[in-house]
Design a protein around this nucleic acid. Structure first.
Lengths: 224, 224
DNA sequence: GCGCAACTGACAATAACATGTCAGTTCGAT
DNA sequence: ATCGAACTGACATGTTATTGTCAGTTGCGC
């Protein structure tokens, strides 16, 4: 097995969340422990968030490798612009991810292409919760993909908070608001939810399958 | 010189916009033309937008290489989210760049991490100009960096369109609106411009240097 | 067509890299 | 402190990748 192949395999192996000793990995790939130590050096140097304590072993959180890309200046601009917008999100998790992604890009790109703290400064916005809904995006998106039902609490008209079980179908960006299209099991009809008005979203254990009348294709198109 | 080093140098060389023959490059790097042909194959295979016509030579548009990165799932999410938002911009150039960046990411990332046309569908927004101001962002940002004066036409209060020469200083994201802070030469004072109300922005040939009283540091902080 | 220069394929020589061995060194547990 | 296992540095050896040579092949201009 070639070295790149082995490095990939090691990464995948580490992402099971368990601890792996160098000796164990060496046996698994039929190389000497020395080679594993060298591999881990390289992996960590290239940013794999792996921890290794003496005598403990290695473990890593799930990561995806983005291979090297050639980007035009416009594409770099889009990258920075998108990052800047997301960085403004109120959700700590999202912001943390955006910050660490920004840091990685900053070290990876030549200076002229990176964010500049001065020119891209973000105001401590007094409308800090304007991007509040963004915090649910990963949950919603994952649920759409996995066809997993969701329980959401929603700030509907008239200041009432409602709780519903829905089948999430599609996320759309409409003007400046994200809209989640779903089949609402509580109302037994299609509904659209503004993401910024969703207070909480919890993936339910139940999955759903496409049923006639409840899929995106069955949705009546709005009249103009 | 190692092969990776040479490949990098070749890329930089090609980006001067002029034509370079294989022979010329071969001489410059003290290798045989055959090696250059092989290098160009690899570079183009990895996405360098270079053209080579028989007997003509090679040239490329400026690109930046993003080395391979290890990203966590959250960081991938931020990447996709930011891209989705920028994709909604009305400006054709920005949208084209976002699309091509999306395509690159899509091919580069394993399926589970990429955009999914169905779930991330973007509505052909009826508020299509909501992100209108984004189209000026690259111009503004470039001008800040280069300390280049700008002529802008601005949609100010009372439906009047004004034209001014400004020294752009800082871009801020305030709630959902981007704000450009600048020294306005027309009014001879600091001014803040909402980017979405800027109708046009043209970089002027004149540069500006920091002058006491006209830099960011000299700007009076707003009273609360 | 013909000539010429640009380009490609194949292969042996060679440079670069990866690996294992082994002799140290570090660090925690006793 | 002392032991032992985990780890690191150095170097010889094996393996892969890169390179130049050279003999084709392509495509353009005449």
């Amino acid at each position: 097995m070639s070295r790149p192949d082995r490095l990939t395999k090691i990464m995948q192996t580490l992402q099971d969340g368990r601890l792996h000793t160098a000796q164990e990995l060496a046996d698994a790939f039929a190389v000497s422990p020395r080679t594993i130590y060298r591999d881990m050096d390289d992996l960590m140097a290239s940013g794999l968030p792996a921890k290794g304590a003496r005598g403990i072993g290695y473990q890593a959180q799930p990561v995806t490798t983005l291979p090297s890309l050639h980007l035009t200046d416009e594409e770099i601009e889009v990258l920075n612009l998108g990052l800047a917008i997301v960085s403004e999100a109120a959700d700590p998790d999202l912001r943390r991810a955006a910050t660490s992604l920004g840091a990685k890009l900053e070290t990876a790109l030549p200076q002229h292409a990176t964010l500049d703290a001065q020119t891209w400064a973000y105001a401590a916005s007094s409308f800090g919760d304007s991007a509040r809904g963004l915090s649910h995006m990963p949950t919603l998106r994952a649920a759409i993909r996995a066809k997993q039902k969701l329980r959401i609490t929603y700030h509907s008209k008239g200041d009432r908070i409602t709780s519903r079980i829905i089948r999430p179908l599609k996320l759309e960006h409409w003007a400046r608001v994200w809209v989640l299209t779903a089949w609402c099991e509580t109302r037994n009809d299609f509904r659209e939810f503004r993401v910024d008005l969703i207070q909480s979203a919890q993936a339910q254990p139940q999955m759903f399958v496409d049923e006639v009348g409840k899929t995106l294709d069955d949705m009546p198109s709005p009249q103009a």
